[in-house]
Design a protein around this nucleic acid. Structure first.
Lengths: 202, 202
DNA sequence: CTCTATAATTAAACACTGTTCAATCTTTGT
DNA sequence: ACAAAGATTGAACAGTGTTTAATTATAGAG
């Protein structure tokens, strides 16, 4: 059990590194993150990072994966009490709102070209966007909407990919163009959702 | 005129710096770009860059603006011989194809958070996306489509912003997720355009 | 043709970055 | 108490963007 105790303390240090990294990212952006900046915050030497992570890339990947988990958590599961079309509208709205609350984290994670992050974020591949839970539930909502006669028949997987890419694009631009008024933001979100739902209708 | 000769040579050096920068970006990506990497290619000392540019940021901005100009040039003007809906389809298709040909340059430019680049790329602002020529022609096509009864009445500016954001999102993801088959790519592009056009129809 | 101002260019330094590694200190199991 | 294992450090390395004083080249004027 002593091995356990040491292991626990070791895990705690790892967690403190990740905490500090997330703090810096949230407050100063991912560009301001550096190994020495992290280790200074928690009073450790710079080399310690490489005892817990393979590289800065790896550390960043771990920190952002946690952040992205929180974003998805904030989105929550689709509202099963709603009709498919209303449920999809609500899901997209919540998705964008959540991303807007973690702007730096969302951008860094979703735009990362690192293979490990891409294994989480890739969604355009042939056939199965089922690997990503958020997309899977969108596919399900589309399928039940088609069955209910609300939507025109189509390939739900392909359609989910196209819809999500559109939402992703608006999200990234809302995060990148910094000075968009809340009113304009709402109008844009509303219009894009309206367009997409119009495209789904038969 | 001697002042002119010197000025011309000076301009030539500036251009060689930009050329080298673009070469490195195209071949090795924007992440591999460094001042010393550039100046080594053209056999100059590193400091020379700061005689022609304020910073690396500024140099990058100049290099990418040129690249983006080429992308827009490749897109070309909207086909005035086509009906508005067909013209819009064609324009979006060409836009994505062009971006796919300069992947690094497109990503770096469109995702840059630098204020100077944003003054070019910002498009979600209230009212006038007329500042950006590509968007302006999209607004025009939408307006004439509405007038022709092809599209349901709507705010053309807002709709253009939503449509372009969607296309932008698909483009970025196609560029970020590296291993998507050409067939799947075509399907995705086709489906998203179909969805958007469906949303426009009344 | 020389001299001086001006512009172009450089070498060296600075503070920073990610990363490695041998040397330490700490904790563990025996 | 001792040895093995693990955690942590400090120093170094090569690289980064940037500044600045010194140097070279060029221009026009006398």
């Amino acid at each position: 059990m002593s091995r356990t105790r040491q292991h626990q303390q070791s895990e705690a240090v790892r967690e403190r590194i990740l905490q500090a990294a997330r703090r810096v990212i949230a407050e100063e952006g991912v560009a301001a993150l550096s190994i020495r900046r992290i280790t200074k915050e928690i009073d450790y030497s710079a080399g310690i990072v490489y005892h817990y992570f393979d590289s800065k890339e790896h550390l960043l990947q771990c920190a952002l994966a946690e952040c992205y988990g929180r974003i998805l958590e904030a989105v929550g599961p689709p509202d099963s009490g709603l009709a498919p079309d209303a449920a999809i509208r609500a899901a997209f709205t919540r998705y964008i709102q959540s991303a807007l609350q973690w702007p730096e984290e969302y951008k860094a994670f979703m735009l990362s070209a690192s293979p490990d992050v891409l294994s989480f974020t890739s969604v355009l591949g042939e056939g199965d966007p089922a690997r990503r839970p958020a997309l899977a539930s969108l596919v399900a909502m589309l399928a039940s909407g088609i069955e209910a006669g609300l939507f025109a028949p189509c390939d739900p997987a392909l359609t989910a990919q196209a819809l999500w890419s559109a939402t992703f694009g608006l999200t990234i631009r809302l995060l990148t163009e910094r000075d968009i008024s809340p009113e304009q933001r709402e109008r844009l979100i509303g219009r894009q959702i309206e367009l997409m739902m119009g495209g789904l209708a038969q």
